[in-house]
Design a protein around this nucleic acid. Structure first.
Length: 572
DNA sequence: GCCGTTTTCGGCCCGACTGTTTTCAGTCG
């Protein structure tokens, strides 16, 4: 069974958990966690890199030992050290360590004293009041553990960025209305525009932190107050979504914004950079001894550290600091660069509006073109068109283009890729289109080899242009199907095809890491909304956010091209 | 386990809050 980066990262994370419970050197533990992040964020499968003779020890945080362990995983599909530790440390302990409030030390103490190694046994012991007999544990800790166990299931899910916005916007508006609040902004993964957000980190500047926090915890939606100090507070909303608030003085705004935006890995790199210069960087500023030499803005912190400003989307320690040093940071694509949308639906299949209405909405957004991509005949549940209906739609679009001014409607179709790799319409009909978006809507469970083969075969069809939502994942609902996107991208480049970045907040497919892979391969990425209504065109901004996280510049995005060049790129 | 502008050993990011202590350990972000 081929081993993928996610498997290697999971093994390293598990190893780190178990080593930590064993009381191993915390820096060794951190090395495994860092390595998990590095491998998980690689634009290519480590297996392929090794096959190509790459030296993985050149990767940041990967030395000879970890490179050898990655090779071992790739070769054998398992890790000897992990198996060995699992014979000493019961696997249930790593589950216990995931209970909020329980860390490696407490888990070890509970296991050593009471022999507990499952969540069930932990709950029984807490109910019987056995935990409080341990030194360092009291009645309150025991109750907290019980409370956490009660809500343990179903809590872990991260919210889609769009859902987080719906919580954050009214909350920030409320905080801005509190007396004495100067600035209030959401930092964290929300500001980095990650596809999902685990909690909200809100930064406030004000003189009297305690007063602000008193009002914050009184917000209507607050369920439980987890902690409440004079500078920070954590609450759990009634929706079980966590919000952290931090109050700092205005002079520290930039430093705090930097600190709470993260990512943690990016922050640590910059702190080390400060240390090398004999300084200290924390959420209050950049300090030389007791003197604050920067901190009011993020820009001055980067400047002092001899770096150009790095936008939040790039702050993942995935090469952005090295790029900044070399003056090679990407100038990220923005909404203003987009000239049109290449994937949307109308009443001809499962959309809500006519072609004309969609085209007018696109024109209002300042677009020069809009591709109409209704479903093909196999998509019966989504009102897929018959051959005759698509033929009629082609004529309708030709006539409409005669009438419309300032926007060109492109003739296309979201054509099903059948399970054998054939396309769902005849070549003769497809040849009348400006381009196609070809998508998988069924047979998700094929093996990686078969699924990849299926798409490559479809791509052999000369009328194949864009692969729609390339992995089929639905965030928090459905995992991606197993497919070798690297092979697909290579094939797409050879054949003049493209992989879509679907901007739907539940899809964002391809993801940031694969966007970067496409960029590295020189493969332009179309960013499309898959809109089923005029409002749906608005989702473009989520695609732009994901593209930025994948380092895409305007030149890397297909639909920044003006109409003539776009048609040329389609071979028309 | 990694790494080098104090470079092959001896460091490794930094601070707030809670609960248990009575000066601090554990956890979290």
């Amino acid at each position: 069974m081929p081993v993928h980066n996610a498997d290697i990262a999971a093994a390293f994370r598990r190893l780190a958990d178990l080593l930590e419970i064993e009381g191993e050197n915390p820096f060794r533990v951190r090395a495994y966690r860092n390595a998990a992040a590095t491998v998980g964020g690689l634009p290519r499968d480590a297996a392929g890199m090794i096959a190509d003779g790459a030296d993985l020890s050149e990767l940041p945080g990967i030395g000879d030992d970890l490179a050898a362990k990655i090779a071992e995983m790739v070769e054998k599909g398992s890790l000897h050290l992990l198996e060995e530790i699992e014979t000493r440390v019961p696997p249930g302990l790593s589950d216990m360590a995931r209970v909020p409030g329980l860390g490696p030390k407490r888990v070890k103490a509970i296991h050593d004293a009471l022999g507990i190694d499952t969540l069930e046994a932990l709950e029984r012991a807490a109910r019987k009041g056995r935990l409080r007999t341990l030194s360092g544990f009291g009645a309150k800790t025991e109750k907290n553990i019980l409370d956490q166990l009660a809500r343990f299931e179903g809590v872990e899910k991260r919210l889609r960025l769009i859902d987080a916005e719906h919580i954050a916007e009214p909350l920030v508006a409320y905080i801005r209305g509190i007396d004495g609040v100067k600035q209030a902004v959401v930092a964290g993964s929300y500001r980095r525009q990650k596809e999902t957000v685990g909690d909200l980190d809100i930064l406030v500047t004000a003189k009297d932190g305690a007063a602000v926090i008193a009002r914050f915890v009184a917000y209507d939606e607050v369920g439980d107050i987890v902690s409440k100090g004079t500078t920070r507070s954590t609450v759990m909303l009634k929706s079980r979504f966590q919000v952290d608030l931090r109050v700092v003085p205005e002079v520290s705004y930039g430093a705090a914004l930097f600190y709470f935006t993260g990512s943690k890995a990016h922050n640590i790199e910059l702190r080390k950079r400060a240390i090398r210069r004999g300084w200290k960087l924390n959420e209050y500023g950049l300090f030389e001894g007791d003197d604050r030499i920067a901190g009011k803005t993020e820009e001055e912190i980067y400047e002092k550290l001899a770096l150009p400003f790095i936008v939040p989307q790039l702050r993942e320690n995935r090469g952005e600091i090295e790029a900044a040093e070399k003056g090679a940071l990407p100038d990220l694509v923005s909404l203003q660069d987009i000239r049109g949308d290449l994937h949307c639906h109308t009443t001809a299949s499962d959309g809500k509006y006519s072609i004309r209405e969609m085209a007018e909405a696109a024109k209002e957004r300042g677009y020069a073109y809009l591709g109409i991509t209704d479903h093909s005949k196999s998509q019966t549940v989504a009102g897929g068109m018959s051959e005759d209906e698509l033929a009629a739609q082609i004529d309708e679009i030709d006539a409409l283009n005669e009438e419309l001014d300032g926007i060109r409607v492109l003739k296309s179709c979201e054509v099903d890729i059948l399970s054998d790799g054939k396309l769902d319409f005849s070549d003769k009909l497809l040849s009348r289109l400006d381009y196609t978006v070809c998508s998988i809507h069924g047979a998700f469970n094929l093996s990686r080899e078969k699924q990849t083969e299926r798409v490559l075969r479809a791509m052999d069809n000369p009328h194949f242009t864009i692969l729609g939502h390339s992995t089929g994942r639905l965030i928090n609902q459905r995992p991606p199907y197993d497919i070798d996107l690297e092979a697909v991208m290579d094939a797409a480049r050879e054949r003049g095809c493209y992989l879509e970045l679907n901007a739907q907040p539940s899809r964002l497919d391809i993801d940031d890491i694969h966007c970067k892979m496409a960029r590295d391969l020189g493969l332009k990425v179309p960013i499309s909304t898959d809109a089923h209504s005029t409002d749906g065109l608005e989702m473009m901004r989520f695609g732009i956010a994901q593209a930025g996280r994948g380092w895409l510049e305007a030149k890397d995005v297909l639909n920044t091209l003006p109409l003539e060049k776009l048609l040329k790129a389609f071979g028309r």
